[in-house]
Design a protein around this nucleic acid. Sequence first.
DNA 1: CGCCTTTGACCGGCGC
DNA 2: GCGCCGGTCAAAGGCG
Length: 264
Amino acid sequence: MSEENRRLTEVIARLYGGQIPRLGLDGSASPPRPVSPLSGKKRSRESMETANSCDANSNRHQGGDADHAESFAADDGTCRRIKVSRVCRRIDPSDTSLVVKDGYQWRKYGQKVTRDNPSPRAYFRCAFAPSCPVKKKVQRSAEDSSLLVATYEGEHNHPHPSPRAGELRRRRGGPVASFRAPFPLNFLGPDHSRLDLHQERGTRCTWFKGGHPPPPPDLKKVCRKVASPDFRTALVEQMASALTSDPKFTGALAAAILHKLPEF
DNA sequence: CGCCTTTGACCGGCGC
DNA sequence: GCGCCGGTCAAAGGCG
């Protein structure tokens, strides 16, 4: 039996060896492909080991904020394959939330303490589309508690929601919502006209000129103005200024930089 | 009120 | 056959 297992393992390794594509950090390099859902509740441990084969790679790059590796796991001995990818992120060791922000919406359906790691492993399903087969496991690295390892199984069968859309989506009551930015969302353009994005919920952003009540906005004009290099430069400068003048932001930035510095 | 998280129970594969 | 273990379910409580 074990001999047969060994031979099967070799066959699988030959079949899938060299077919592991590399993606960018956001995993967006390949278009979404339909993926067959896991048949039954479990996958074989052999498949899991295949999926985890990139561990060494991931841990080798702990200096970075995130690492990404990817593999395919065979399912039920058929030719169907499940895309498995891993993402490592460095987080605050005191942060126990087990949340890896990737732009998608996830619904937690379980948490378990595993044998090989004292920190709990959280199980998430994609909540953006009910039929989406993608699952995510998040667990702190056993060696480095400041390293969060997210394992993605399967591929999304829906377009990637914009990062903001993911955050904006309300917990209930429909897909549209407002969000509170950490800095004022009204900008002075190079000609001292003002774009005010800090509106009440349900209203569109409007364009102020000279601080007077706005005329009905001409959306095309607004878009042209926002797209102009002058306005974008002014926008970046004001955003940078707003961020750097916020003591909370500079404090967090300093802490993040200190965290990255090697210890001597 | 409805959605989300938590958490103990349960299920099924695997090794002995 | 039994126990271990990872993964999933689902009831209960929390929260906005």
